[in-house]
């Protein structure tokens, strides 16, 4: 059911390697360029953040594992540009544009960068879906963790938290549902909650008696427990 990005709890990845404090340097010039091209292409408004996340998740498991972080971004960007008809496969093959784009009036100009980054893209929306849970309520997550609208589609319920019993910590209001929005099926906003799970519930053992993992989960991922 899962895709290669869904790695929470996996064994075998080795040590985490700390880095110096402060702003991380780009390890190579192309890293910064990859970040900037991806943001500038996203600013054309042809896809949502949910769709772009799904494009990265749709990389083959082999590519996902061997690509570095920004290589994943670049590969997913190329796939999205073709899927959305912004760039043709012939253009990718040739490495050259075949003509101006009708979207050129949407191009992010240098003088607008600061304003666009500062504006952001809030995900909260008004919703008709009533809040079903209150802080303290016991809930159980969907099992299996999957997109119920699109087979193999985008979801934000990790496999490690499927079928688990937790407790509502807080409601964040109503937010766009990624499972729907990633696939162009509408924003479908609904209540979003922070849900706390005892580590023992998720892993069958815990490093510390009171240790917990908290996930942000949409109401449709949850049942009363």
């Amino acid at each position: 059911m899962t895709r290669p990005h869904d790695m929470g709890g996996r064994f075998g990845d080795g040590a985490v390697r700390p880095e110096p404090d402060g702003i991380p340097e780009f390890a190579a010039d192309w890293h910064g360029r990859a970040l900037a091209v991806t943001l500038a292409a996203g600013a054309l408004g042809q896809w949502s953040i949910d769709t772009s996340r799904h494009a990265r998740e749709c990389l083959s498991p082999k590519d996902y594992a061997r690509f570095s972080y920004y290589e994943k971004w670049l590969a997913a960007l190329a796939d999205l540009l073709v899927a959305k008809g912004v760039v043709s496969e012939d253009e990718l093959r040739a490495g050259q544009a075949e003509g101006a784009s009708p979207l050129a009036d949407r191009t992010l100009l240098a003088e607008n960068v600061a304003a666009v980054l500062a504006r952001g893209g809030p995900a909260d929306r008004p919703s008709d879906v009533a809040q079903q849970f209150q802080p303290g309520d016991a809930v159980r997550t969907r099992r299996p963790a999957r997109n119920v609208m699109v087979d193999g589609g985008h979801t934000r319920l990790p496999a490690y938290a499927q079928g688990a019993r937790g407790q509502i910590l807080r409601c964040h209001g109503t937010h766009i549902l990624p499972d729907s929005n990633a696939h162009g099926l509408g924003e479908a906003p609904e209540p979003l909650y922070a849900v706390a799970f005892p580590a023992f519930e998720l892993w069958g053992q815990a490093e510390g008696a009171g240790d917990e993992v908290v996930l942000d989960l949409w109401q449709s991922y949850l049942d009363p427990a």
């Binding site: 544009a97 050129a104 992010l108």
Partner: peptide, 18 residues
Amino acid sequence: TILTGKGLIDPAALDAII
């Protein structure tokens, strides 16, 4: 190169983002 050629990227905007 492709996106700049299509008029979809302002290279100076990339510099500003970086």
